[in-house]
Design a protein around this nucleic acid. Sequence first.
DNA 1: GCACAAATGAAAATGATTTTCATTCCCATA
DNA 2: TATGGGAATGAAAATCATTTTCATTTGTGC
Lengths: 121, 121
Amino acid sequence: MSRSNPRVLSTLERAGGFASAQEIYRLMQREGESIGLTTVYRSLQSLVNDKIVDVLRRDDGEAIYRLCGDAHHHHLVCKSCGETVEIEGGAIEKWARVMAEEHGFRDVGHTAEIFGICSKC
Amino acid sequence: MSRSNPRVLSTLERAGGFASAQEIYRLMQREGESIGLTTVYRSLQSLVNDKIVDVLRRDDGEAIYRLCGDAHHHHLVCKSCGETVEIEGGAIEKWARVMAEEHGFRDVGHTAEIFGICSKC
DNA sequence: GCACAAATGAAAATGATTTTCATTCCCATA
DNA sequence: TATGGGAATGAAAATCATTTTCATTTGTGC
Ligand SMILES: [Zn+2]
Ligand SMILES: [Zn+2]
Ligand SMILES: [Zn+2]
Ligand SMILES: [Zn+2]
């Protein structure tokens, strides 16, 4: 197993700590960095193995990588224009823990997103 | 938009109410039913639109379709074996409404899922 | 310099899902 | 009954993320 190319991690950080492999690749290209898509995928896999980043799935199935240390938060997304607001989880955090415990689940995580139409749309 | 082929829903039921499009297709083939993969996908999409089935993602990104009741609910999913428990949203229903209103969003919906390792795994 | 292992990336392969498009099926009306 | 139009169907091609292959490059210790 290969080691992670440090520029990939640095780009993921610069992307807000939340991006897909393809996005990271395109971002690096746009910034003139020479790297292959394969290396981006391999580096991300390695970072996941080392538990430096988490991997989640978008609704369309694409894998998105998230820096672990990042402050946990959720999103409020406009269905029309795509505007996204980062919000606090608040009550959800406890809800997830309680529900999981109630059913005997461990190592739990959660996803939660609110979508609607923003005031500008 | 086409309507769902009733044999697809019937097969999903027979599969335990939990299967991927490819699995449903292969199951129907094995049972001698003549159907195209395209129709399976279209029927499942239609069932999702009509909120007769939910769609989730396996760890590998493949979409899995799951029969579910009408009542609004959320899922607690085992990352290892895929076991799914339907749970009440509880506090997050209000959280979603409040957060959305706070930021001026309307026509809001939400998704929330908890994932972890179940007691059997 | 030399050998050898690790890293890289272009290109091909894979696999799920979507799109295209020609054909078939259904059904209402003349 | 015949017919015309819209819906349903499915084979094949296209798409797209991801993985695999494999030849080349790079790095490191001797
Ligand atoms: Zn908007
Ligand atoms: Zn949270
Ligand atoms: Zn389990
Ligand atoms: Zn809810």
